[in-house]
Each structure stands twice: as structure tokens, then as C-alpha cells.
Amino acid sequence: MIELDSIERVFQVGDEEVHALKHVTLTIDKGEYLSIMGPSGSGKSTLLNILGLLDRPTSGTYRLDGIDTTSMGDNEQADTRRHRIGFVFQSYHLVPRLTAAENVALPLMLSGMAPKERHVIVEQALDNVDLLDRAEHRPDQLSGGQRQRVAIARATIMQPTILLADEPTGNLDHISGESVIEVLEALNKQGIILIVVTHDMDIGERAARRIRMVDGSISKDVR
């Protein structure tokens, strides 16, 4: 469960203060499927970064599963990211030198799990996204849709509470995009909070709860 209470994020650009987020208050329940839409510069990426603990709000509180994250230190935040939050990026962010399986195993590796234990979990995760036969392929040997599915397998391998997807279909054609969205939605049905930031109306409309942002504030919140 996510509780944002009057979150503000102010950037200093030159002499000017830019209010990227203005008093955003938002509660997201367990297992919700949420889309965030809005024009460029509306603050949706900033909101996503704050939700993913990649960025800290200037003021306000963010409670994740009842725990106040704003008072956490860097290491604690890193730990929370590792265990509770999964990221899916528009440009996949796969490490080009590593195979699909190694990419998927990265979070497990960072958590210090032994290679043998990792192997089983990684295989299961790749099987879930239907890529078991591509385990030893490097990213440049995979199609865009396959790469994004590898990224999803990596994002969910620690069984996080939230999955944050930033334009997950932005670099994909319609058919691959569709399959990626289906994988994400299937994960949501298993109880994960799915938050998709997108420009694509068709994708945005699929979500059960649709948030529209304008100028750093939530202008619409439709269920």
C-alpha cells in the first residue's frame, strides 16, 4: 500500500524554482492497476521517480506498506528498492555484456544470493515471460519485445509489491507492446501494484484507475 501525503518536489533551474510536483496526495491500495498520463513536463516522471525511491521529495511524506520512506538513509532506501520495487524502463536498460539470464539475476546477485540458488529462480522467472529458450542470449540477440520481457522478469524476480513501468511500450511496435502489456497485467492479477506511466491513450485506458497530471498536480483520478 502506497500513501503519498502532500508531496512537493522543487527543482532549482538557474535562478528559477520549478515546482515539478505540487502537494500531491495519493493513496494506492494493494493490487491496484494505475496509469499516469499527462503532457511532457506535467510531473509524471518525477512522481514515478519518487514512488521508486530514486528521488526524494522536497517536502511531504511517502509511506510504503506503512513505513515512512522519507526518513530512510541511502542504504535503507536501496534495500527497499531491491525488495519492494520493480522498475521497467522504456529503453529496457539491460546490461549489454550479460546474457538474458544474467540480467535477470542482477537483483539476486546484488542481494548476495548464491549462484546455485539463483539459477532455479531465474529459470522460473524467464519461463513466466516465455523466454526460457532465450536464457543464454545477449540483449543484442533479442527483439525489442523480448528485451522488455527480460526486463520485466528482472523487475519481478524479488517479488516486489510495486511494479513501476515508465513508457514500457514506448520503443515497441503494436504487437510486441500488446504482449508486454499482457505480461504486466498478468502480474497485476497476481496482486502486484502496477503503475504505468504512458503517453499512449490506448494503453492508459486499460488501467482500472487512471490518473491525469497537469502542471505537477493530479487533475483527474478516475476509477
Partner: peptide
């Protein structure tokens, strides 16, 4: 950036 997002500490 990715390693950090995946929970890698400083």
C-alpha cells in the same frame, strides 16, 4: 543508474 534502481547501494 540501473544497478541503483535494482537496489545496489553506494
Amino acid at each position: 543508474g540501473l544497478l541503483k534502481a535494482l537496489g545496489g547501494s553506494r
